[in-house]
Amino acid sequence: MSKNEALFEAITKGKRKDVADIVQKLIDDKGDVVDLLNETMIPAMRFVGDKFSRNEIYVPEMLIAARAMQTGLDMIEPLLADSGHKARAKVCIGTDLGVDCSVEKYEAAVNDGAQVVCLSALLTTTMPYMKNVVEKLKDRGVKIVIGGAPITEEYAQEIGADGYGDDANDAVNAVEKCLAMA
């Protein structure tokens, strides 16, 4: 199955209703959802991530694309499970937990099976807390990837993080590297 152009565009433009319509039709037609995920949905988010990396789009555009992607994922998830498709890893993303997350929240995620924890700081005022999280989780066998506006690769190394992402897209690459190391 080749790329579904309409779905690709709907995800990249953040049009979640269009995504829902297109995915529902594919489900009704008994289409291959694994193929849809691998050939269209993941490439669409990669495309969005690349544009974000090049400063062609910004956080809001990225978020509505991610929301549209999630709409489609929620619809195909039961079918993916039925088809034997397995997730590659469990990753905890701090921004999905909320803002100003305490280290206890990350510990709970690790207790729940997270293999990688991703942390982001928007301001210099919140970045020192990352070191607390790294220190608290260092003996748990979990990998930690950090990023955000004031964060640098040097800072990641300094506090003992396992990876650094210059932006969300780069963070995905860092997580993949960490998983290969694990």
């Binding site: 953040g14 956080v59 809001p60 978020l63 509505i64 929301r67 921004t95 803002v99 928007l122």
Partner: peptide, 11 residues
Amino acid sequence: RGLTNASMDFF
């Protein structure tokens, strides 16, 4: 609104 909600509200 929170940054995520605010971001989506723009659209």
